[in-house]
């Protein structure tokens, strides 16, 4: 057998490795066999974690929802205070707070809390999803632009109005989409 040159040896090794790779891929079972199942498990785990989180949040805030449904928004707000002792700054708590405050006539506070919640978690803007508040935020922005903007335009030096209008624009920008 003719002795291979240095380049020839390398070419042979390259050919063998490539052939081996192709053969492995062609003969591999669908999904990569048992060793590859960990990747599939990851997808399952992610979905499980998502659903578990949704269920946990629903259960955690169920008393608040019940009080709101019973037409007792202030007590729902107090219940949120109680829950905030254990879960301060939770974005879903902020969204509920925003909704109650809007119901009680505090538009500026509602805008602030929605904006704060969205900064922490963008899922409230998703069209689909367990916590979607897209419609509510759109309506809030429309109301904010209709009521707060004229006030700000007639008092352009007012810092508090400027800050609230800036939050309305933030929500409007998030609603408009684009990259996050």
């Amino acid at each position: 057998m003719a002795k291979l040159s240095c380049a020839g040896r390398l070419k042979l090794l390259l050919f063998l490795a490539t052939t081996g790779l192709v053969a492995l891929l062609v003969t591999a079972p669908n999904g990569g066999g048992t060793a590859g199942s960990s990747a599939l498990d990851k997808a399952m785990e992610r979905e499980l974690a998502r659903q578990a989180r949704a269920a946990f949040v629903r259960e955690l805030y169920a008393p608040v929802t019940e009080l709101r449904d019973a037409g007792r928004p202030q007590q729902a707000l107090l219940k949120l205070e109680e829950l905030a002792r254990a879960y301060p700054g939770d974005p879903f708590g902020l969204v509920l707070r925003a909704e109650i405050l809007r119901e009680l006539g505090r538009l500026d506070q509602a805008i602030g809390h929605y904006a704060q919640a969205l900064r922490l978690n963008g899922e409230f803007l998703d069209e689909q999803g367990p916590f979607s508040r897209r419609t509510e935020i759109r309506l809030l922005v429309e109301e904010g632009l209709a009521t707060l903007l004229p006030r700000f335009q007639s008092h352009p030096d007012n810092r508090s109005l400027a800050a609230t209008v800036k939050e309305v624009y933030y929500l409007q920008s998030r609603l408009a989409g684009g990259c996050e």
């Binding site: 007590q75 219940k79 002792r85």
Partner: peptide, 22 residues
């Protein structure tokens, strides 16, 4: 609100009969 936050009372201890506008 403050008493609830401090744990002096619970949200369910009372019935709110009426509440004013802010």
């Amino acid at each position: 609100e403050e008493m609830t936050r401090e744990g002096k009372i619970e949200a369910d201890d009372f019935t709110i009969l009426a509440q004013s506008a802010t």
